[in-house]
Simulated assay, not measured.
Amino acid sequence: MLVVAVSSRALFNLEDGNTIYEQEGAAAFGAYMRKHENKPLRPGVAFHTVRKLLALNSHGMHDKVEVILLSSNTLDAGARVMKSVTHYRLDITRAFFTSGGDRFRIAKAANVTLFLSTNPAEVKKALGCGIASATVIPTSRLPAPETESAPLFIAFDGDSVLFDDSAERVNQLEGLDAFRASEMSNAKVPLGDGPFKSVLLALHEIQTSFEDRPDKPLRIALVTARELAVHERVLRTFRTWGVTVDEAAFCGGLPKGPILEAMNAHLFLDDGQHNVESARHFVPTCHVPHGIQADMAAAA
Rank of each mutant, 00 (worst) to 15 (best):
A167N: 15
D159G: 06
F196S: 10
P190S: 04
L201Y: 00
E174K: 14
F163D: 05
D177N: 05
E148Q: 08
F153T: 05
D215T: 13
R239D: 13
A134Y: 07
L235E: 14
F156R: 05
P151R: 04
E183H: 06
K188T: 14
V123Q: 05
L200I: 00
L235C: 07
A248W: 02
E146K: 01
V243K: 04
N171Y: 13
V161N: 08
S185P: 01
G130H: 01
K188D: 15
R233V: 06
F238V: 08
P143M: 05
G194F: 10
L222H: 00
F196Q: 10
A178V: 11
D157W: 01
L152H: 14
D177V: 08
L162S: 05
T139S: 15
A187M: 09
F153H: 15
F163N: 01
R239H: 10
L173R: 12
L218Q: 11
N171I: 05
R226G: 06
W241A: 12
E183S: 11
I206C: 03
L218S: 09
E174F: 04
S166A: 12
S185A: 14
A121S: 13
V199Y: 12
R219F: 09
A225C: 02
A150K: 04
V189R: 15
E211C: 13
P214V: 05
A178C: 10
T240S: 14
A155K: 02
E122A: 13
P143L: 03
V123N: 04
K197Y: 05
A144Y: 02
R219S: 13
S198M: 06
N186A: 15
A144R: 09
Q207Y: 05
K216D: 08
V161T: 14
R213Y: 08
I206Q: 10
W241L: 15
F156E: 03
F238Y: 13
N119F: 06
L228C: 03
S185Y: 08
R236H: 11
D164Q: 03
S133M: 12
P151I: 04
E146Q: 08
L127E: 09
V223N: 00
R169G: 07
V234E: 04
A221N: 00
S209L: 10
T240R: 10
L235T: 10
P151S: 10
P138V: 02
T139G: 03
S160M: 07
A181N: 01
G128D: 02
T135C: 10
L228K: 10
I131H: 01
P138N: 12
S133N: 14
L218C: 10
R169L: 11
E183Y: 06
T135Y: 02
G175Y: 11
A178S: 15
P143N: 04
L142K: 13
P138I: 04
S185C: 09
A225H: 02
R226V: 04
K216G: 07
T237F: 07
L127A: 08
V189K: 15
L218N: 04
G130S: 06
A248R: 07
Q172I: 09
R239N: 11
P120A: 11
A121R: 12
R233N: 11
V123C: 10
A126D: 13
K124A: 12
K188Y: 08
D177Q: 14
C129L: 07
L176N: 02
Q172S: 06
D157C: 01
A202S: 11
M184R: 14
R169K: 13
R141P: 00
E122D: 14
P190L: 02
P190M: 00
A248F: 03
T139L: 00
G158A: 12
V170A: 03
N186T: 14
S133E: 11
L173W: 01
